[in-house]
Structures are given as structure tokens and as C-alpha cells.
Design a protein around this nucleic acid. Structure first.
Lengths: 192, 192
DNA sequence: CACATATTTGAACGATAGTTCAAGTTGTAC
DNA sequence: GTACAACTTGAACTATCGTTCAAATATGTG
């Protein structure tokens, strides 16, 4: 009847709709910022009536929470993949960060908007924190120093901000160099 | 008549009102986030009618721009003061950053909200960028390495984020240690 | 005094917001 | 078929929004 793994096609469609609405929400955030997210703009983006948006997300807050969760999970998955599969994990991280300047800019922008939102809602903090914890775990594969881990995590975050807001140089080599510097690798391998 | 240094008491009162409205705006941002800023909430906070808010700031955008400019300038002034007057400039920066956990939390939160806003408005980027450039200048007093400067700037930003969103440890010593790490000081003086 | 300029006020307009709801449709179980 | 649950729809309610405006007050100038 109502078990978790039901194959009820109605519920399956419901889950799909839910995902579609979240996707439309992220599109709106990327285009107009978190301030542009309303039940109506999201519904229009998804091509559905307004009341269907509220059917799946009773309040606008629920929708934003779901969107943040989704985008954070996607980002976290990327990092986990680097940890598990990349040989040079620091370089993998640098590539991921450098993406924020190119194709991944919209996504990174959305994540910043939503994480800023999280600063004001304690319920969202654990989700926003997960990204940071995963970067820390990646860092622990590169060094034993706790302060080096902290510096790398902070620098990673700061680099993303710089790329998004300052249009800082964002080629992988540059990011990689700065990450190495934060990690404290010997000078002569960093300086030109 | 209309020169800059007029002592016209009417204009003086106008400037004071303008400052009051900006102050009220920042209070609203600190309490409810940038999304909570409306002409009405600001007017209520300032104890004035709505139309007076629009008299000084024709559009809501003008008001947000003015508020961001104000908060960014205050922060920049703090950094400049450290550069010009502190002996241990890195420690001064660490103290400033650590403030974000205590009395300066609201202001730091407001700055993040408003700088996130800047990501979507090119006109605001120069203002948001100034903070970063001043930190870089401070860093250049501590090192000759360009990558060390970049790492310190990025780490400073990331530490603020961590303190605001993750409730990361924020005592001055800890922040100072991480900043030193990013700067690349010899290991033995950093590790415990 | 009159005259001009700057500030202040309350009311109003049109637009859009979140949310609710009763009615309709589709799919599942019996 | 009937009964039931999940999904979908359009319309509506109330609230708040940004902005405008004419009138009132205060201040400076002659």
C-alpha cells in the first residue's frame, strides 16, 4: 500500500514534478537572484499553474530550502568524486573552483545566493556546512596540519567569491597555485 | 547659492535624514536580510512616512546601493587604519575578522548580503572590490610573494564566511594562525 | 513683507505577492 | 463497475509592494 518503495506511478510523477519545480527554481535564481523567486515566477518557468507549486511546496520557504539542498548536494557530490577518484586531488579542486568563471558560473552564483540565505536560517546551516566539511576532508588527503586544512578551506571559499564578484583571474593554474600556497607547500615550487 | 560647502540648514538636515535612512536600512538588513528591505520597512524603522524614503531615494535600488556603499566604506576605513597605524598588521586583520563572531556579526552579515547583491549588479562591483584590494595591500606589507598575497586575501574572505555561516571558531589566535598559514610562514611557528 | 527652495506629509494608484480552496482529472485497488 | 488517493487546475482573497502627487511646512533670500 503505502510502503517506501512503492511503484505507484502517481507518486513517481509527483517526485518528477517536485524535481522539475526545484530545477525551475534554480533557473530563476540564476537569472534573477534569490529575490526573484516567487511561486509565480517559478511556476511560469516550469510551465505549470501557481497552485501546483504550492501543492508541492506549501510555503515559499520550503521551496528555497529544497533548492538549496539540491544545489549543495550536487556540489558536494562533485567534491566527493574528486576525493574518491582523482589522483591529484588538489588539482581536481582547482579545476572545480575555476569552473565558477565559465560554464559553472550560474550554478556557483545560485549557490552563493542560497548560502547567504542560509546565514539567516539555522535550519539550513548544516546543509551549507557540508560543502565546507567535504573540502576539509579533501584537504586532509594533502596535509597533516590542521591549520593548513583550515587555510585551504578558507582559501577555496574566498577564491570562489573572488571569481564570482571580482571577476578575478580563474584559470586552473592560478587557482592551483593559490591553493598550494594556502596549503603551505615549499616556496620554490610555487614561485616562478 | 548652490555651492558645495553651503551652510544652508535645510540641506544639512537633508544630509542628516539621508544618513538616518541609510542607517535604518542597515538595521533592517541586519535583522531581516536584504530581502526584508522595502521602502515601508525602512521608513518604519526610521520613524518617518514612506514618501520621505522615496524623496531621498527615488527607487529601492538607489537605497540599496547607498547602503552597500556605506557599509563597504566603513569596513575599508578599518582596514586602512590597520595598514597605517598597526605594528603587527596581520594580527590587526585577525582581530577585525574575529569580530565577525561577536559584536560585528550583524555588520558582517549585512556586508555579505549586500556584496552578494553586488554579484548581479556590475555597477556595485567596484565598491565590493575595494575591500579586497585593501586587504591585498595589507598583505603586501607582510610578504613579497604574489601568490601569498592572493592566498591571504582569499583566506580572509573564507574565514569571514566560515564564521558567519558555520559558526566556526573565531578567537583572534585561531584566525591569526590560519592567516599565517595562508601567508606561508615557516611551519614550526604555526604548528603547536 | 514676498518669493524661492528644501523638506515633510498623508492618501492614493496599480501591480504583484503568498496562500487557500473547491472542483476536476488521472491512476490504483477492489 | 465503485471507492479512494494522488495530482492538477483556475479563480479568488487579503496583504503588501514601489511609486506618484498635491498640499503643507520649514528655511533661506531679497
Amino acid at each position: 500500500m503505502g510502503d517506501d518503495t512503492t511503484t505507484d506511478r502517481r507518486k513517481a510523477r509527483g517526485r518528477k514534478r517536485r524535481a522539475e519545480i526545484i530545477e525551475a527554481t534554480l533557473t530563476v535564481v540564476q537569472r534573477d537572484g534569490a529575490a526573484g523567486v516567487t511561486h509565480r515566477t517559478v511556476a511560469k518557468e516550469a510551465g505549470i499553474p501557481v497552485s501546483l507549486s504550492t501543492y508541492y511546496f506549501a510555503t515559499l520557504d520550503d521551496l528555497l530550502v529544497a533548492a538549496l539542498t539540491s544545489v549543495a548536494e550536487a556540489y558536494t557530490a562533485r567534491i566527493r568524486h574528486i576525493i574518491d577518484h582523482d589522483d591529484d586531488k588538489l588539482r581536481g579542486l582547482a579545476e572545480l573552483i575555476a569552473e565558477s568563471a565559465g560554464p559553472g558560473r550560474d550554478r556557483a552564483l545560485a549557490e552563493r545566493e542560497l548560502s547567504t540565505l542560509a546565514a539567516r536560517r539555522p535550519a539550513l546551516r548544516p546543509i551549507a556546512r557540508r560543502w565546507r566539511e567535504n573540502v576539509a576532508e579533501l584537504a586532509r588527503h594533502c596535509t597533516d596540519s590542521p591549520s593548513a586544512v583550515a587555510a585551504l578551506v578558507a582559501a577555496s571559499d574566498g577564491l570562489c567569491t573572488a571569481i564570482l564578484i571580482d571577476n578575478a583571474p580563474a584559470d586552473t593554474d592560478y587557482v592551483h597555485t593559490v591553493l598550494q600556497q594556502a596549503l603551505g607547500v615549499p616556496r620554490e615550487t610555487v614561485e616562478q
